[in-house]
Design a binder for these strands. Structure first.
Length: 515
RNA sequence: GGGCCCGUAGUUCAGCUGGUCAGAACGCGCCGCUCAUAACGGCGUUGUCGCAGGUUCGAGUCCUGCCGGGCCUACCA
């Protein structure tokens, strides 16, 4: 084999023109859950996120803020870095396109494309939208604006072009041979039909502003932001030094997680750039859906972008993570409403899982002297289901089906609750203590397994729960599921709730007010 | 304009290649338990499966048209 079990996963690098919001949090949390899952499953993982900082829009925002583009980028980039802490994101690196290592990679890739004859200098005339970073044809304009509603200006400039038109057939062949390379399937179909409709050469440089990476050999041009940005996935693992172990270990990336709006860049342009430079394309790109907020589209005009820190302050880190991953199939659109979040939080987390752990641990505390009880063959059916969890989870996670993974875990939670009722250990405490111990052991062992597999999704709560079961940090990987069952007699700490119920704050000042 | 997808219980949705496919969860009602975060468990509840035709022994499940919603892409310059 020698093919080491390794996994390279990325989020997009986020454009610093916007502050972090729910949408950014979503992609990042999903990537984190996968990264954590793979690590626990024994993979060497590289999990990358970061910020995209060049381009005309950033330059303009900086100007209106009265600061330099670099200063502006520094500030916003910091907010994104803070978001990773807020949401307990376990990224291994955080790349910025303004870093020297990135610039080096962009320059190298550019030269490589040039050397291979994939770039030529051409002339472009057309309507350009700064907001969309895109050109439009005369005919596409509506009322003098882009189809997206953005302002456009007439631009006539010399541009470097990438010979994208040459790559259509090879892209199609690639996707034909690698049907898993784009997910979900519906998106793959869109991409394929887009490619089939014919690809035009792509303008990959801009003039007229300087906030970007200069084109090697022609500093009047800066590299098109999208080409610049996409290369981050390479620069973070040491490109252009393709001989270094980091690069040879991790490239091609296993998974680029992206929002559905930027799929084309990742599933058409990016693989074409890579193939043209003689590098293998990513193994898989997955496009997730959008959240609405209380039924409304997130938009600047509505001002309903939810900053991650607000969410975490209100609901808690784990609850937000859980909701985002559980509420809907990854890939679909969904609605983020207070009602739905509270329902998940109180129903699934507090009542089902949190209360299960609490009721079992309290009984052990009272009836077993606070020590792991003796097993005795009870609860075999329950334990069998808990054992069957990992293989199912692997399958779901391979397909980014977080909601199914969580559903499977919660099915065992439900079984455990039913088992508590059926076995009634509180009654056995008076009649058959040996059997009571055996029942409680099965439950505690089930909870241990649940706590281990739930780590990727709600890491903080899982950690506390594992602490309450006195599971050593070294015994929390998936390998430990079979290797390290609970040892009877182990002293357990005083149990504490792990998922508090969410109680609507009754605001006294609102008591008499109409709402 | 072309392409794709969706419309199933009050709500959110499962239902692959046609024959227990009329389901799950939440909500709601009744009952049980009392270990637990007023949590848990049991039973029950509602649907003309968007509309109209058609294929078939038999269709949410296939075909056609229509209505409604979404997405991708392009608009005879």
């Amino acid at each position: 084999m020698t093919a080491e079990r390794r996994f390279y996963i990325t989020t997009p690098i986020y454009y610093v023109n916007d502050m972090p919001h729910l949408g950014h949090a979503y992609t990042t949390v999903a990537a984190d859950a996968l990264a954590r899952f793979m690590r626990l499953d024994g993979y060497r993982v590289k999990f990358l996120t970061g910020t995209d900082e060049h381009g005309q829009k950033v330059a303009a925002s900086a100007r209106s803020a009265g600061i330099s583009p670099q200063e502006f980028a520094d500030r916003v980039s910091l907010s994104f870095r803070e978001m990773t802490g807020l949401l307990a994101i376990s990224n291994d690196d955080f790349i910025r396109t303004t870093e020297p290592r990135h610039r080096r990679a962009v320059e190298a890739l550019w030269r490589e494309l040039e050397r291979r004859g994939e770039i030529y200098l051409g002339r472009f005339a057309g309507w350009y939208s700064v907001r969309d970073e895109a050109f439009y044809g005369e005919d596409e304009l509506q009322d003098g604006k882009a189809p997206t509603g953005a302002e456009v200006e007439w631009v006539e400039e010399e541009n470097y072009f990438f010979r994208l038109s040459r790559w259509g057939e090879r892209l199609l062949a690639y996707y034909e041979a690698n049907p898993e390379a784009i997910g979900p399937k519906s998106r793959k179909n869109e991409v394929v039909s887009f490619i089939k409709s014919g690809l035009n050469d792509l303008s990959i440089s801009r003039t007229g502003f300087s906030w970007g990476i200069p084109v090697p050999g022609n500093p009047r041009h800066v590299v098109y932001v999208w080409l610049d940005a996409l290369i981050n996935y390479l620069s973070a693992i040491g490109y252009p030094d393709v001989e270094n172990p980091e690069f040879s270990t991790y490239w091609p990336a296993d998974l680029h997680l992206v929002g559905k709006d930027i799929l084309r860049f990742h599933a058409v342009y990016w693989p074409a750039f890579l193939m043209a430079a003689g590098l293998p394309p990513p193994r898989r790109v997955f496009a997730h859906g959008w959240w609405t907020v209380e039924g409304e589209k997130m938009s600047k005009s509505l001002g309903n972008f939810i900053p991650p820190e607000r969410l975490v302050a209100i609901y808690g880190r784990d609850a937000v993570r859980y909701f985002l991953l559980r509420e809907l199939p990854f890939g679909s659109d969904g609605d983020f409403s207070r009602r739905a979040v509270v329902a998940r939080l109180n129903g699934d987390l507090a009542n089902d899982f949190g209360n299960l752990a609490q009721r079992v641990l309290v009984m052990i505390g009272r009836n077993c002297g606070g020590r792991v009880p003796e097993p005795g063959g009870e609860g075999e059916a329950l334990l069998a289901n808990a054992r069957g969890l990992l293989p199912a989870l692997r399958e779901h996670m391979r397909e980014e089906a977080f909601h199914l993974a969580l559903e499977a875990i919660w099915r065992v939670v439900g079984e455990a609750n039913r088992y508590v009722d059926a076995a009634a250990p509180w009654a056995l405490a008076r009649t058959d203590r040996r059997r009571m111990e055996s029942v409680l052991y099965a439950l505690a062992e089930t909870i241990r397994r649940l706590a281990i597999v739930v780590q990727p999704f709600v890491p903080e709560a899982a950690e506390r729960l594992l602490g309450q079961l006195a599971v050593a940090p070294a015994a929390r990987s998936f390998a430990a599921l079979e290797e390290s069952p609970l040892i009877p007699g182990t002293a357990l700490p005083e149990p504490e709730g792990i998922f508090p119920r969410f109680v609507e704050k009754t605001l006294s000042c609102e008591a008499g007010g109409a709402r």
